[in-house]
């Protein structure tokens, strides 16, 4: 029983980060009906930027801020240079193009920063709190991660539900034509969706890097986790992405805890297959995933 609690506690912060990553995928999907398979490639790239800034200035926080700005910019660039022109052609083209971006970004990062894993130490103490005579697998850094994720999700939900821009973005996602006829500049809103997704991904990258190491391909596995969470959540639902992001993180933590961490990708795969077989439209969405 105490094991169970330990595993769950240990999975919370990674679950929260997976939730952010799934959120980024959902933001892009809602705005342009494209799954951005380069999302975590972008996050990896901005995390390297954060690392560089941190090494130059010694400030983790400044690294985070610059990574967020870079995530915003990269998101907009990818949207305008790749997705908008491709989207007009075909959907499989858009999917392939995002993989092209992923390949290019991973190679570019390896060219600039080298391919070897780099340590990205946590900015604050990452050893577990001590209470009731034992050490719990929950550290001040986990608390920082959790606080950051909660803050970001709350901020986003305020933007989306309480502001005109958020309303315009949601309308542009649901029905671009009606949005245009209402006077919304839809293309800007779509680009803004990519930008915010880039920012969210950047935060996720900086937060997750201390939990593993940073290399050009080290986020590939998180792409699978995030995609799984986003799809189970319905791919359209911000709430679903957050809920199932945390859920996926906890399940992976439990399975890894009781068996072996190398099972994690298989767990994600099994979750994904089960979901696609039995509830392909996701739990939080009424849209169709099935082909026929």
């Amino acid at each position: 029983m105490i094991d169970f609690i330990d595993y769950l506690l240990g999975g919370i912060s990674s679950g929260a980060i997976i939730a952010l990553m799934a959120l980024a995928l959902v933001l892009v999907w809602r705005s342009t009906r494209v799954v951005n398979f380069a999302q975590l490639g972008q996050a990896m790239f901005t995390t390297y930027i954060a690392l560089t800034v941190r090494e130059l200035t010694g400030s983790w926080f400044l690294g985070l801020i610059i990574a967020m700005a870079a995530g915003l910019v990269v998101g907009v660039i990818v949207h305008f240079l790749v997705i908008r022109p491709v989207k007009r052609l075909d959907t499989s083209g858009a999917i392939i193009a995002t993989f092209g971006v992923l390949i290019a970004l991973e190679a570019l990062a390896a060219m600039v920063w080298g391919g070897d894993p780099e340590a990205f130490p946590p900015p604050i103490n990452n050893s577990g709190y001590e209470a009731f005579g034992r050490i719990w697998p929950f550290s001040p850094y986990d608390l920082l991660v959790l606080a950051s994720v909660v803050f970001l999700v709350l901020a986003l939900s305020v933007v989306f539900t309480r502001t005109n821009v958020g309303l315009a973005m949601r309308a542009s996602a649901f029905n671009p034509e009606v949005a245009r006829l209402s006077g919304v500049r839809v293309n800007r809103m779509l680009a803004l969706g990519w930008a915010i997704a880039g920012l969210v991904g950047a935060v996720a990258g900086v937060l997750v890097a201390p939990l593993s190491t940073l290399s050009p391909t080290s986020f590939d596995i998180f792409l699978v986790f995030a995609f799984t969470a986003a799809v189970i959540g319905g791919l359209d639902s911000l709430v679903g992405a957050v809920a199932f992001g945390i859920g996926t993180g906890l399940v992976i933590a439990l399975v890894s805890g009781y068996s072996d961490s190398s099972n994690a990708p298989l767990v994600a795969l099994v979750l994904l297959v089960l979901n696609l077989l039995f509830k392909p439209e996701g739990v939080f969405s009424h849209h169709k995933a099935r082909a026929v």
Partner: peptide
């Protein structure tokens, strides 16, 4: 494995 390992970080 490291990466996975450290997800249980505090532990």
């Amino acid at each position: 494995t490291d990466e996975d390992f450290t997800t249980e970080d505090g532990f």
